[in-house]
Structures are given as C-alpha cells and as structure tokens.
C-alpha cells in the first residue's frame, strides 16, 4: 500500500515536471519566432514585466498642509502576449504604500486594499480616481503641484520599473 502511494506521488511529480517542461517549450517556441541575436547571448528569453509594460500619465495628487496621504494614478499597458500584474509600489517619502481600489457600491463609495492589479496580455489598465490607485501613506513631506516625484513599481515577476510622476491638483 505504502509502495503504491509512493509510486503514485512520484508519477504525479513526474507528470507535473513534464507538464512544466512542455509549457517552457511552448513559450520558447513563440519567442524563437522572433529573430534576434540577443537570444543567443541570453538563453532565458522571456522578457520581464518591467520590460514589456509601458506607463503613461503618471501623476500624484498634491497634498494639503498636514495631509499625510495621497494617491498616485497612471495607466499600465502590457505590450506582450503574457499577462502580468502590478503587485506593489514604493515611494521614498511615504512610510507605507498600498494598492487600493475605490468602487461605488450602490450609492456608497468604498475604498479597499487589493493585493494586485492584473494587466492583461496586450491590454491596459487605468489607475484613476473612482477605480484603482496607489495609496501613499505616512507622507514625510508636502507634495506640491508642479513638482515631480519618483515612484517604483513592482510586478508579479519581481521586476521593477521607476516612473517620474508629476504632482498636481487633479480634478479628473
């Protein structure tokens, strides 16, 4: 009986490994269709999320004196055929940074923390008021309109991207 169990587990592990290999092969096949000399130099052909995701309209809301929180907004566009996700962000002058989602639940506006934001393959996701935002908390300085701040985004594959965001009074 014990032997049977062990054989079964081994078989399952083997099947999983084969499955994973098959997956790897398939991605390699698609990557190989792109003729590039770089492929020879770097055998690990998969591009990181940071390389295939472009950021547009990065902006941070200016704060009022004494205000300890603000929100950052931007649009993430995934130029690859693989889906990715934004998993965290950081900002020098903020003690804590989280990803939040605001939604209307009937007539009630609610804000909740989310673990990540999916960025679909060949698609984009907009972080904007009334939807997702990067929540900056415990701000150590006032963020004044007209200045620029650096945000660092981290994606699901642990790759990072830094973004220069303009600070402004956002009314849309």
């Amino acid at each position: 009986m014990k032997l049977f169990k062990r054989t079964l587990i081994t078989a399952m592990l083997l099947a999983t490994t084969i499955g994973l290999c098959a997956c790897n092969n398939s991605t390699e096949t698609t990557e190989n269709t792109v003729p590039s000399t770089a492929l020879v130099a770097t055998p690990a052909v998969t591009k990181t999320a940071a390389e295939v995701i472009t950021v547009s309209k990065p902006r941070i809301r200016a704060t009022a004196p004494g205000q300890m929180v603000s929100g950052a907004f931007l649009t993430l566009t995934n130029t690859s055929a693989t889906s990715h996700a934004l998993t965290s962000a950081s900002f020098n002058a903020a003690g804590i940074v989280e990803i939040h989602e605001t939604s209307m639940n009937g007539e009630m506006m609610r804000m909740r923390q989310v673990s990540h934001i999916d960025i679909p393959a060949n698609g984009s996701v907009e972080l904007k008021p009334g939807s997702y935002h990067i929540m900056l908390m415990g701000l150590e300085k006032e963020l004044s309109a007209g200045t620029t701040e650096t945000l660092t985004l981290t994606f699901s594959d642990q790759s990072h991207k830094t973004v220069e965001a303009s600070v402004g009074d956002l009314s849309e």
Binding site: S70, G71, M111, P129, D169, S171
Partner: peptide, 17 residues
C-alpha cells in the same frame, strides 16, 4: 474625509475648479 485620496479630493477639486 481628508484621508480619502481618491473620490473626495477629486470632487473637492471639481467644485474648486
């Protein structure tokens, strides 16, 4: 509320504009 980073300040900014 002031620690709302999203809809509240947007609405206040719309009123202000």
């Amino acid at each position: 509320y002031a620690s709302c980073p999203d809809v509240c300040p947007t609405t206040l900014a719309i009123i202000a504009s």
